[in-house]
């Protein structure tokens, strides 16, 4: 589903050849560069800069007050708490799914791969809705939970489960191409030399997939910190209790506290920028490796 999440491998030699030719492009290419720059500045560059400018518009004092105010702090705490539960679970799932799909052959494998990506094509609002249908007092499982004094909807467990749904594909999606490219021969060698399953995993599989795994975890974290639609459905938006960072931004914005809204938004944007840097770094690594294999 998300094409950008795969790092593109290209041999450098062919790239260089093209780079040399591009100079001959002349007028049309200059025009196209102009159009592309204008398009990307209006949609990406200016908005990214604007977040930080708007956040500091009323001075550092207002910024600091906005992010250290108690409702903001509890929103940060809840968001981090949710992420700390969601990311390890989805990482475990991602490793298991990628291992099963890439190292073994079985019927229905393609179906499993498609199912892993299913949450990407479901609207976040619908992702929230399905858990309301399941767990609300009038829902299918709701009465049972209410009887046992457990609130899922409009409380923290609902936020967690909706976030798990939305971020489920990220780690698996990153690992499947990495493990597929490696094949199984290194693991087979380890096992035939007498390693047990854990030794094989820790010493062979994990080192081989560490960058893909790390990037998958970062994407999963970024999305679970920033998830808005699904969380907005299942959270009761109770300040200090079930308010995550994106919901807090929404509340501040709707109360016309624009500087405060952008201050909290800027915190999340820093994470987005780190994600982008990480991705560029990974691509650079892959390019280097491809380079080494060519020479």
């Amino acid at each position: 589903m998300h094409p950008s999440l795969e790092t593109s491998v290209d041999t450098n030699s062919s790239k260089r050849r093209r780079g040399a030719k591009a100079g001959a492009g002349g007028g049309i290419n200059t025009l196209l560069i102009g159009i592309a720059l204008l398009y990307l500045s209006m949609l990406l560059f200016v908005p990214l800069v604007a977040i930080f400018v708007k956040a500091f518009e009323k001075g550092f004092g207002v910024y600091w007050a906005a992010i250290t105010e108690s409702d903001a702090l509890s929103a940060v705490r809840l968001t981090l708490f949710v992420t700390a539960i969601v990311v390890p679970l989805n990482t475990l799932f991602g490793i298991a799914a990628a291992w099963a799909v890439t190292k073994f052959h079985f019927r229905g494998k393609q179906v499993l791969v498609s199912l892993v990506e299913l949450p990407f094509s479901v609207s976040p609002v619908i992702a929230g809705l399905i858990f309301v249908l399941l767990f609300s007092p009038g829902g299918v499982l709701g009465p049972w939970f209410v009887e046992h004094g457990l609130n899922i909807i409009f409380s923290v467990p609902g936020i967690i489960i909706a976030t798990i749904f939305v971020t489920l594909p990220f780690v698996a999606r990153e690992l499947i191409p990495v493990l597929e490219a490696r094949g199984g021969s290194e693991e087979e060698a380890a096992v035939s030399l007498g390693a047990n399953g854990w030794q094989m995993f820790w010493r062979v599989t994990l080192p081989n997939m560490k960058w893909g795994l790390l990037y998958g975890i970062i994407l999963c974290s970024a999305r679970s910190i920033g998830e808005f639609g699904a969380v907005s459905v299942v959270s009761g938006r109770i300040r200090g209790l079930t308010n995550t960072m994106p919901l807090h931004v929404e509340i501040l914005y709707n109360e016309y506290q624009f500087s405060a809204a952008f201050a909290v938004a800027s915190l999340m944007s820093i994470l987005a920028v780190i994600t982008l840097i990480m991705k560029s770094f990974m691509e650079w690594k892959t390019e280097q490796r491809a380079n080494r294999e060519v020479h």
Partner: peptide, 22 residues
């Protein structure tokens, strides 16, 4: 610029929403 292309995947949608509106 190439790195910036992925910003819409990484930026929380609510942040994108309030920024574009402004």
């Amino acid at each position: 610029l190439d790195a910036l292309i992925d910003l819409p995947f990484a930026l929380p949608t609510a942040v994108a929403g309030i920024t574009l509106t402004t």
